[in-house]
Design a protein around this nucleic acid. Structure first.
Lengths: 155, 155
DNA sequence: CGCGAGTAGATGAGCTGTCAACGATTTCGT
DNA sequence: ACGAAATCGTTGACAGCTCATCTACTCGCG
């Protein structure tokens, strides 16, 4: 069948390029910032935020993985490294012999409490402040729309 | 001074979360797609596209690195790997004894010509088709705006 | 009960990215 | 012309991600 590809037209390509470059630059800068400000990687940061904000500092392994939408293997390696640095600890789950809880240690709380304000400040400076409130909410709405659309699509 | 952090308000946070999740999901899906469709990594793809589209198949090493906004070290490793698989080759630069050209091989051209249409199709399916032309151009405009704003900011 | 299927999570190999150091040229100031 | 500094690109060590595989446990069913 091999229909001729429907290449992007000039405007589509311009929009796509801007989006891609913006997103790469933004994410790149933010993660370098987290790294140099706090010594944590962006992954460390996300795990600790999720664990403390949404799980009260203690969460089942797979729930945590689902929350941040990571594969369990990635989470497992990540937790191993973070445990080695004392940011989290593993605990056995009494209800399910296979299971494990991931717990934020005091050092983990300390790390995230120091890093979070700086991170928010950078998000504000680089992203939020670039737009008016209306524009920001538009961007949020459009993002949500793309997200919902993707969820209906096959991989 | 330690001013209290200006946390994101409810609407700011909602917009930020939607954007982040959308962007992660989209990039994740696209790069897995490139991988399984063509056997190339997303990085291979970007390098070959840049090299062939914008450089006519031959480009100075650092120009290529700047074009895709990568560190030279990353590019160097990437080129080494791609050269090993026959997608590109290095050539000495006659004008500058330190320099090098990166050249797309015939196999490299073949690979990118096969992969590009599928990639565009996925971009269309996951992203472009989620929005009306107006919405798409709005998203592009807002992205550009954030990008321009970031370029005025320190790291 | 006992067996097979499914689930929770760990682990190892191999590839990718980052950081710091390095060698090789070129450029620039004097 | 000569030494210092800047530029071009590579390399090695190390952390991170992915994929396949593995163990241990639970659950459902005969």
């Amino acid at each position: 069948m091999d229909a001729p590809p429907r290449w992007l037209d000039r405007e589509e390509k311009a929009a796509w390029d801007s989006f891609i470059r913006m997103q790469e630059t933004l994410i790149g800068r933010l993660s370098r910032r987290v790294q140099t400000d706090s010594g944590m990687s962006a992954s460390d940061y996300i795990v600790l935020v999720s664990l403390t904000e949404r799980g009260g500092g203690r969460m089942r392994f797979l729930d945590l993985a689902k929350l941040v939408e990571w594969e369990k293997s990635r989470m497992s390696h990540q937790v191993t490294r973070m445990a080695k640095r004392g940011l989290v600890a593993r605990e056995d789950c009494p209800d399910d012999g296979r299971g494990a809880f991931i717990v934020a240690t005091p050092a983990g709380y300390k790390a995230i409490e120091e890093a979070a304000p700086q991170h928010v400040e950078h998000v504000r400076r680089l992203f939020i402040d670039a737009l008016t409130p209306n524009q920001l909410s538009t961007l949020g709405r459009l993002s949500k729309r793309v997200l919902d659309h993707m969820e209906k699509q096959p991989d």
